[in-house]
């Protein structure tokens, strides 16, 4: 079950986007895997930040860095990158 909440718009958008990425990189599962990895890292750091768990001195991943990593990953796929920017706060 999915924690749908009351924001079906974001949810549907995210589903469509994930499917688009999967279709686009069908022959390159590594790209999709790397994308998930970036999201995981970002998510984890956001959570640590919120809970004050980030270790002192560590530099959390900024939105800009996330965007740049994804840009590298989605090279020549401008539409996917543009759409990613719609999800990322501060992009």
């Amino acid at each position: 079950a999915m924690p749908l909440g009351s924001q079906p718009v974001e949810f549907n958008h995210a589903i469509n986007y994930v499917n688009k990425i999967k279709n686009r990189f069908q022959g390159q599962p590594d790209v999709y895997k790397a994308f998930l990895e970036i999201l995981h890292t970002y998510q984890k750091e956001q959570r640590n930040l919120k809970e004050g768990l980030s270790s002192p001195g560590s530099q959390p991943l900024t939105e800009q860095e996330v965007y740049q990593q994804v840009a590298k990953l989605f090279e020549n796929q401008e539409d996917l990158l543009d759409e990613f920017g719609q999800f990322l706060p501060d992009a």
Partner: peptide, 26 residues
């Protein structure tokens, strides 16, 4: 129709929570 693996669901969840955060910031 969508065929989502658990990994996909995680990605969808992360993306939609990012989008929500973004909207809340606006």
């Amino acid at each position: 129709n969508y065929d989502l693996t658990p990994e996909d669901s995680t990605a969808v969840f992360m993306l939609s929570s990012m989008a929500r955060q973004k909207r809340d910031l606006l």
